[in-house]
Amino acid sequence: MGYIKTTSQARNENDAVNLYYEDYGTGQPVILIHGWPLSHAMWEYQKQDIVEAGFRCISYDRRGFGSSDRPWDGYDYDTMADDLNDLITSLHLDDVILIGFSMGGGELARYVGRFGTTKISKLVFISSIAPFMLKTDDNPNGVPAETFEEFKEAIKKDRLGFLEEFGKDFFSYKDNKDNVSGSQLHYNWGIAAGASPKATLDCIDAFGKTDLRDDLKKIDVPTLFIHGDADDIVPMEPTSQQGHELVRNSMLQVIDGAPHGCVFTHTELLNKIVINFIRS
């Protein structure tokens, strides 16, 4: 456990951002990148399996979330990919496996777009927003812009109330009460509630409106997309399905009946899929 200081986007020492990370195990490094609006804590049920499978497991908090610093700005994928690069550089990592959940898939894509794959061996996108969530003329299966604007207005009006309802949709809770407890739902709400309000708001444009299609076309390492076919948050067609079509020789694993938060509701199966892929 500790902090690294970002440098890529800092104009001076006062602009540097401290990113909190946790580092367990030995072996090939696996970096876990969390979804919105959570923190590294969302990976609680993956970390142990990854370490026990013989990997070094590193998870960190995106700027504005968890225990990382909360700058007023920098909640765009260029900056957040630079933060990821600073983490990799500061920890002197190589042969890295990157695993991104939901919004975290955007960091994977933009990292490759900006820095290539010299230090990367594999990529795993889980319930990912990449490559493009927004509905446009050339992305007709995307989400209408009005939806993201409604998210932002709801957060400005009643952030905590919005997060409570979002958490239920995250789990498709009515359909998954046997797979995830009310206590887990409340715990995730607490994590989200503790994030920077400004970061929570600004990240909506990042994950909702950033076109990462050209970034994905640059991927040249083994890549796996995992998505639940009952995801009510991130539709699979413009994201994982399109990503699979864009990334040459990639694989797509669809989990039957899984909601957006499949890391919690289908943990055993999800972990097995991930471990089998990163071991292969």
Rank of each mutant, 00 (worst) to 15 (best):
C57A: 15
G100H: 03
I50T: 08
D83N: 01
D61P: 03
L91G: 05
D86C: 03
L87R: 04
Q46T: 04
D78M: 04
S39P: 02
D15L: 01
D49N: 13
G64N: 01
M103F: 10
S67V: 00
C57Q: 08
L84Y: 04
E52A: 08
R70T: 14
N12A: 12
I31K: 02
Y45R: 14
D69A: 10
S68C: 05
L93N: 10
I88G: 03
G104S: 03
V30E: 08
V51D: 01
Q9L: 09
E22N: 13
D49Y: 07
G25Q: 11
Y21D: 05
D49K: 13
A16T: 15
L87Q: 10
P29G: 09
G104H: 07
G66L: 04
Y24N: 12
W43H: 04
D73P: 00
I99D: 08
I50P: 01
R62M: 14
G35M: 11
L93K: 06
E52M: 07
N18I: 01
F65E: 11
Q48W: 00
F101Q: 12
F65T: 13
D82Q: 12
G25P: 08
A81G: 04
G25C: 03
A16W: 02
D73F: 13
A53T: 06
D23T: 08
N12Y: 13
G64P: 03
H40I: 04
F55N: 05
L87I: 15
A10N: 09
I97V: 15
S67F: 13
D78C: 06
R11D: 13
W36L: 07
D78P: 00
I88F: 02
G35V: 07
C57D: 07
H92Q: 15
R62P: 00
G74N: 05
D76F: 01
Y45Q: 12
I58E: 10
G35C: 09
S39W: 10
R62V: 14
D86H: 01
Y21R: 03
D86E: 00
G104V: 08
P71C: 05
N85T: 01
Q9K: 15
K47S: 06
R56N: 02
Q46S: 11
G100P: 06
M103W: 11
S90M: 01
M42L: 10
S67Y: 12
D23S: 11
L91K: 01
V30Q: 05
G104Y: 03
I31H: 09
I58W: 02
T89D: 14
